[in-house]
Each structure stands twice: as structure tokens, then as C-alpha cells.
Design a protein around this nucleic acid. Structure first.
Lengths: 242, 242
DNA sequence: GCATCGATTTCGTCT
DNA sequence: AGACGAAGTCGATGC
């Protein structure tokens, strides 16, 4: 990150010229972008094929590959971090190959035409700071347990059960065990199923005479989720992250 | 998508020059990319702040915004399709603002330095064709129901229950109701919870004397998922998408 | 518009 | 490496 960051660009380069730039950029750990008409083939956990069209391709120094069309937030094709990228010229085409193992996956991008190629030297020392997450909601409850209900006492977070870890584990004013499942946003049936699994597991694990309550804490619930809560004898408390 | 796709680029432009290019590109429905040192602020469903660093920014004609660092497949910040993008100059900075309503969300990218700016005219007539999905697994079972078990007869797909839609609904050789939940890959406790919700719901809905079996079809299960299946009296059949 | 669920989910954390 | 659950998840479908 400098006032004059190192940038190398080519407009409508010949395949050989583009290959040289991409090869050098990958070698020195730069970020590469390509734009042009290409086809994309993927094989791995699934398989896909994409006919000729204009796309924007990004190769990151960590081994990520992204193929973006003009629509959508998600790339139309991609490869996760840790892949090996290589570039070759096949006839008049520039071919990008991105591969990895465990699982075996391969992404091939064949540019019939490269309209633009660029290499960027990237320096990014900063970490993203996010608020409004489930972790923030948990802290809020640990600071003010009464928000769950008067007399609630947290005893542990991430307490392990045979069905997984409970977000907040505690007891109510009457000494009954309380399992709290937190969600940062409006919840559906899946969250009720999750809470129910934990309550079930603890009822099995703890002594038979121990009463176990399950409380779902979230900003709101859907109708179906509320129905499922009622059927399972579980409770809901409306609360959002700070 | 032409042999000479329209591409406009600037290296180390002045803020005003970059603003003009970005503004014109947005107006004509082109894809915009920017690279340089910037800060990013987000407020909406959550909130985040990102200090100064080199990033690659993409603005798509459908209103998507993406901010990528040198690491990770996911953008460090973003805005989904449907947002309004605007560009202004504030002092020496180029500021990109991306906004939407329902929910109210705002992303502000302030470039201290623009190392590169580009506008791409995109034409992409092709649709992605994917195989190896859950839908492919479903088709496989409908074609050859014996893969679930000899004598299995599918009666409906996406059959509605009070707990959600069942992937494949049918009956076994003895006439018992069978609920099949499909997963394209190895499954954990969540899938068992899902299947259990459907089975529970149907046992309530159907007459008391009707026996309901639940079968999870996936390539494999985790130990915990297998344990939960056993506790709930549910079954597992190993099968992968074609 | 909301609800539900799949996804080549990705990502972080912990075992 | 695998398991488990969160995510500003996104995206597709149905109501």
C-alpha cells in the first residue's frame, strides 16, 4: 500500500503477452485480474460447464480463483484458497488452470479473447471489525442475564452435550437447568430443531429428575418455528444483538 | 462480447478523472473495477469498519458491490444486487456509496489513492449448467427407487408437512409411510434434526395407526449424526449424486 | 414481500 | 484433517 502502488495492465493483449504478465504476477504473489470472452469448466465436488461470454476473473496470491459475470454477488465459478494456478497458451486461447487436492478439484478458464489483464501488488495490514454478531448477543446476555428472564444465571458458554455445544447453559430462579440457543436474526424451524437436540441430549445425560428448559433467544421467529417451539415445549425470548 | 470488447482504463488517475469514468460507466450499465488504498464502512443488518489497505472493488450493473482483499474467497465487504451506486470526490478521496432499503444498508468505500480504474462492457448470454446437486440425487432415486431399498415406491416430492416440505415421500414394500431426506454430501446432526422434524410432523398429522419411517440418503454421515439417527429410530442409506 | 431450504456454500474454531 | 455451527451468508422457489 503506497501512494503509487505497483500496477501492470494490458489492453487487448496477444495471448503470449497476457500469459507472460499473468505468469510473472503469480510468481511474485500479486493479484491478477482478467476480463474477456471465455468458457469455464469445473470438476470436483460437483461439475459445471459455462459457454462463451464476457467475465471478470480474479486470481489471488492465496490461491483463490473467482469468475464473475455481470450479475449476482456470488461468482459463477470459483476455486477456494490454497489452489495452484497456472497459465498457458493453447492455440489462440489463454488458458487459466486452477487445481487442488483433498478434494480433487479443477477449474479451467479458456479466454478466446482477453480484453484486459492486470496485476496488482497488494498490501493490506487491516482486519475487519464487525459488530451485531451472535457473539455480541451472547456478551449482552452474560452482562445482563435478566434479559433472558429475571433470575436467570449463566453457568457456562459452549457447554458440550452429545448433540453439540450449547450457546449459553445456566439455571433459572427455581434451580432448573436452562439451555439457551442464540440467533442474531429472525429464526425458522432449523433453529428450533437445533435447540431441541440440545435439550433432548441434556435430558438424557442429566439425572432423570432434573428438569431442562429450552429457550430460543432471537429478534423474532417465523410462524412455523413458533408452532414447533410450542409442540416441543420450548420457549422464546425476543432479543437482538446490541 | 465482441472481438474487441469496449474497455476503458485509467492508471493512477486523479480523483476527478476516476469519478468521471465511474459515473459514466454506471450510467451505461458497465461493470466497474477499482484498485487502490481505501477504507470501508458498512452499516445495515450488522456493522463493520475496515482501516486503510489495498483492495479490489467491483461494481456490477445489477447493483452488486464487492470489496476483495488479497485473501479469501469471500469479499471482505459487499452489497447484494439491487443497490444504488454513486461516486463522489471528497477532498483528495474518491468515495463510492452503495445503498439499499429493506433492509436499510449502506456501504461506503473511500479511496485515498486509486491505483487503477476500469469500465467493462459485459455481454454474457450463457447459463451455468451444474451437475452433482441434490436435485440430481433426487432424479436418480425417482428413476431407481430400489436404491433406497427394494420395494420402495415414491409417491410425491416436496410433499408439505407442518414442519416443512419432504424431499421424497413414499411407502415401503409393507405399505408403511417413508420420509426420505436427501443430501448431496456427508451430513451432520442438522440433517438428522431436519428429517426428525418431518417424521414427527407426519406422525402427528397422519392417523395414529400409520407407521412412519424416516430415511436419510447421503454419501455418508458423521459419528454424531449416526448416534442421533439411532436415538430417533431413523435410518441411513449411503448414496451419492450421479 | 416473507418463508423455507440448498449450496462446489465459505469461514472460524476446536478436537 | 474432520466436525460442527455461524454468516451482513446468497440464491431459488413457492406462497
Amino acid at each position: 500500500m503506497t501512494a503509487e502502488s505497483a500496477v501492470e495492465t494490458l489492453s487487448h493483449p496477444a495471448p503470449d503477452t497476457a500469459r507472460d504478465l499473468v505468469e510473472r504476477a503469480i510468481d511474485r504473489g500479486a493479484m491478477v485480474t482478467l476480463f474477456g470472452a471465455c468458457t469455464v469448466e469445473y470438476q470436483g465436488r460437483a461439475a459445471s460447464s459455462l459457454g462463451l461470454g464476457d467475465r471478470h476473473v480474479t486470481l489471488k496470491p492465496d490461491g483463490t480463483a473467482l469468475v464473475h459475470t455481470d450479475e449476482g454477488q456470488q461468482p459463477v465459478n470459483w476455486q477456494p484458497p490454497g489452489c495452484d494456478h497456472s497459465v498457458t497458451v493453447a492455440g489462440a486461447s489463454l488458458v487459466i488452470l486452477s487445481e487442488r487436492t483433498t478434494p480433487d478439484e479443477e477449474l479451467e478458464i479458456a479466454f478466446e479473447t482477453v480484453a484486459h489483464a492486470a496485476a496488482f501488488d497488494v498490501s493490506d495490514p487491516e482486519e475487519l471489525a464487525v459488530t451485531g454478531t451472535e457473539a455480541d448477543l451472547k456478551e449482552r446476555i452474560l452482562e445482563t442475564p435478566d434479559l433472558v428472564e429475571p433470575g436467570f444465571t449463566p453457568l457456562a458458554t459452549e457447554r458440550e452435550t452429545p448433540a453439540g455445544a450449547v450457546d449459553v447453559y445456566g439455571e433459572d430462579a427455581a434451580g432448573r437447568t436452562v439451555v439457551v440457543e442464540l440467533k442474531r436474526r429472525r429464526v425458522g424451524p432449523d433453529a428450533v430443531g437445533q435447540l431441541n437436540r440440545y435439550v433432548d441430549a441434556l435430558r438424557r445425560d442429566l439425572h432423570a429428575e432434573t428438569e431442562v428448559r429450552g429457550v430460543l433467544v432471537a429478534p423474532s421467529v417465523t410462524d412455523r418455528a413458533r408452532q414447533l417451539l410450542a409442540e416441543k415445549g420450548l420457549e422464546f425470548v425476543s432479543l437482538a444483538p446490541p
